[in-house]
Write a protein that binds this DNA or RNA. Structure first.
Lengths: 133, 133
DNA sequence: CTCTGTGCAAAGCGTTTGCAAACGA
DNA sequence: TCGTTTGCAAACGCTTTGCACAGAG
C-alpha cells in the first residue's frame, strides 16, 4: 500500500480529499482514464469538477509520480509511477494490464543500431484478454 | 517508391491531388503530424482545408494503409503502413525515426507470461537524437 | 452523368484558464 | 493567517459534421 499523503507532501502538493481519492483510485484500479477517474470520484464527492481532476493529474504528471500511458486506438490511462514495466491492452474491452519483461537485450540492440541516447522504453502489446476470448 | 494511386484505388478511394499529396508527404518525410501535413499541403494548394486532411487521414487509417503512431509526451504522427517496426523519438526536437529490431523473444515471453492473445507490439524508445546531443 | 471529395463555416468535445470562495498547514 | 486548491463558467483548440459546389471515373 502506498503512502499517498507523504507522496503528495514530498512534491509540495497539499493533501486534499480529492487528491487522496485520485491516488487511491489509481492504486486500486492500476490504470484509469480521465473519465474513469471522474466517474469514480463523482460518487465520493457531491460536486467534484472535471477541472479539479485535470489540474491534479497534470500536477502529478508534472512531478512525475503519476504517468500517462498512451495506448494505440484507445484513450490514455494514468498510473502511479513504479519500476519500469510494459503494458498489455485488450482491443475488445479496453482493459490495461502491467507486464514485466526484461528488455535489456532489446535496448542494447536499439543503442547499437542507432545513434540515439535512449532514455525510456515504451512497450505496449495489443490483443485479446482471457476474459474476451 | 510507392504506387499511391493504386493503393488508393485498391481501397475504393478516388485519386485526388490532395490525397496524392498526403501520401507523397508521408512517404517523403516518413512521419508527419497533422499540422505538419497541413503546412506542407498549404504550399501546394491555394486553399486546402484542414477538414480535408482530417477526413482523408481518417479514411486512410480506417482502411489501414496509413497508421497513427502515438508517442509519449508528443503529438501523434502518421505513417504509411509497412512491415512491423519500432520507433525512436527525440525528446528535444520531436523527430521520429524507424528502427527495426527483432522482437520474437520478447513477444514469446509476453505470450507465455500472460493469458492474452497478442496481436500487435508497439515499441517506442525516447531519448536524444544525434543532432540534439 | 453519378457519386465521391473538397472547402467552408458551424458545431462538438475534451482540456485549460480565471476567478471567488473554501480549505490546508 | 497566507498561500493553495476547489468548483464553476467561460474560453480554447483540435476534430468532426453538414452542405453546396467541384471533380473523378
Amino acid at each position: 500500500m502506498i503512502d499517498y499523503k507523504n507522496l503528495l507532501k514530498e512534491n509540495n502538493l497539499k493533501v486534499t480529499p480529492q487528491r487522496v481519492a485520485i491516488m487511491d483510485g489509481l492504486d486500486t484500479y492500476g490504470h484509469l482514464t480521465i473519465d474513469g477517474l471522474y466517474k469514480l470520484l463523482v460518487d465520493k464527492f457531491d460536486s467534484i469538477s472535471l477541472a479539479t481532476i485535470y489540474k491534479n493529474l497534470n500536477a502529478m504528471v508534472e512531478k512525475s509520480f503519476v504517468e500517462e500511458v498512451k495506448i494505440p486506438n484507445q484513450k490514455s490511462v494514468y498510473e502511479i509511477s513504479k519500476a519500469a514495466h510494459s503494458h498489455l491492452t485488450c482491443n475488445n474491452c479496453g482493459m490495461v494490464e502491467d507486464i514485466t519483461i526484461d528488455l535489456k537485450t532489446v535496448i542494447a540492440k536499439a543503442k547499437t543500431s542507432s545513434d540515439f541516447q535512449i532514455d525510456k522504453t515504451n512497450l505496449v502489446f495489443s490483443g485479446i484478454c482471457s476474459n474476451c476470448k
